[in-house]
């Protein structure tokens, strides 16, 4: 390999490739915003923007967790059911607290504590089963997905679990109130995203996730505690689900078998649209955040305009997901061609 000559030639192609990878999702979001505004100027009204951000917070927070799981080569299908299950148990615990101790701020704090414990615990179970019992993540989380979904249906006796009105009053602000004109859920989303970004890009944990997703053997031979890191990604995922649930419960004050349905797919979609590779090895938390915003914006635009029925929301999202992955593939194969000596 001659040393000097290729340098000049390699750089322009690299610039192009960075464009697609890093700026691609952002570019898509900007286009989407422009389209939304063109179709209905109300799209950029402050109320609507806040609305989009708040709604994207649930999926976004969960998707930040999913970014780690997927980067490390895993998958977690149980997040939607897990959210419903946690919401159900939270409501049961809070209602019980209201009955036995009356309504106070502690009622809500108990619910939140319960949510955190359940989220971390459920994540640990997924991680433990994939790493120690050596069952494929897809199967493990498919199993736990069914378990949580049916448990919440059982708790609700097929109907809906509703939060006692006293507790609802205290809990309500967590979803509906704002700080500096930004709703609390958005703050939680922002904080989770920043911590996630730092964790992925500035700590050994993030590097290890990428290494494991890229090649588990190499990671093991490089003195990385593969099982431990993988388990942590699931715990992190559980924690994110728990946080998302904490801000979700006060929105409706209820949980049922229909809570969080298909959240797992939306979360995974946000991760993939953001440029993280489904087979692992490369994770982008920033992209995930944008992915979540794109998904919510699509739904919102369809709501605001009459061109396409809102019922086709899923179809539009589906097209976007497939297109996003196709674009990633395209930039990959271009690179592979250049790889030849």
């Amino acid at each position: 390999m001659s040393v000097s000559a290729p340098e000049a030639a390699a750089s322009p192609s690299k610039g192009f490739r960075l464009d697609l990878k890093t700026a691609g999702p952002l570019l898509a979001l900007i286009l989407l915003v422009a389209l939304g505004y063109a179709l209905n100027p109300l799209f950029l009204a402050e109320g609507n923007v806040t609305n989009i951000l708040t709604r994207s917070a649930f999926i976004g927070i969960i998707a930040v967790g999913a970014t780690f799981v997927i980067t490390a080569g895993g998958i977690d299908l149980s997040v939607g059911s897990m959210a419903a299950f946690i919401a159900g148990v939270m409501i049961i615990v809070m209602n019980w607290a209201v009955e036995s101790m009356g309504v106070s701020i502690w009622t809500v704090l108990m619910g939140i504590g319960c949510s955190l414990i359940l989220g971390i615990g459920a994540g640990f179970i997924n991680g433990f089963l994939t790493t120690k019992a050596k069952i494929e993540a897809f199967i493990v989380t498919l199993g736990t997905m069914g378990i949580y979904r049916s448990l919440v249906t059982y708790f609700a006796d097929g109907g809906t679990l509703s939060l006692a009105s006293g507790a609802r009053e205290i809990y309500r602000p967590v979803y509906y109130d704002s700080f500096l004109r930004i709703p609390y859920p958005v703050w939680v989303f922002i904080v989770v995203a920043i911590i996630g970004w730092v964790l992925m890009n500035r700590t050994a944990f993030g590097r290890y996730c990428m290494a494991i997703g890229s090649n588990e053997h190499v990671a093991r031979y490089s003195a990385i505690k593969v099982d431990r890191v993988k388990t942590w990604t699931y715990i992190l995922q559980g924690l994110c689900v728990s946080l998302a649930t904490i801000i979700y419960v006060p929105r409706l004050g209820s949980a049922s078998a229909a809570t969080g349905v298909l959240w797992e797919l939306e979360a995974i979609a946000a991760v993939i649209i953001g440029g993280t590779m489904l087979k692992g090895g490369f994770g982008r938390v920033g992209g995930t955040v944008i992915g979540a915003l794109i998904l919510t914006a699509i739904g919102n635009i369809l709501n605001l305009t009459e061109i396409i029925s809102n019922y086709l929301n899923g179809a539009v999202q589906g097209v976007i997901i497939v297109a996003a992955v196709y674009l990633q593939r395209g930039s990959l194969s271009a690179r592979r061609k250049k790889a030849a000596e």
Binding site: A204, S214, N215, V218, R220, Y221, S222, G281, F282
Partner: peptide, 25 residues
């Protein structure tokens, strides 16, 4: 390892990430 592609190096990562993987601490 003798298996540099399968067990030694992350082929999709850059030089730096590979070099320090064993001693990231």
């Amino acid at each position: 390892t003798k298996d540099r592609k399968g067990k030694g190096l992350l082929l999709t990562a850059n030089l730096k990430d590979n070099l320090t993987l064993l001693t990231l601490k």
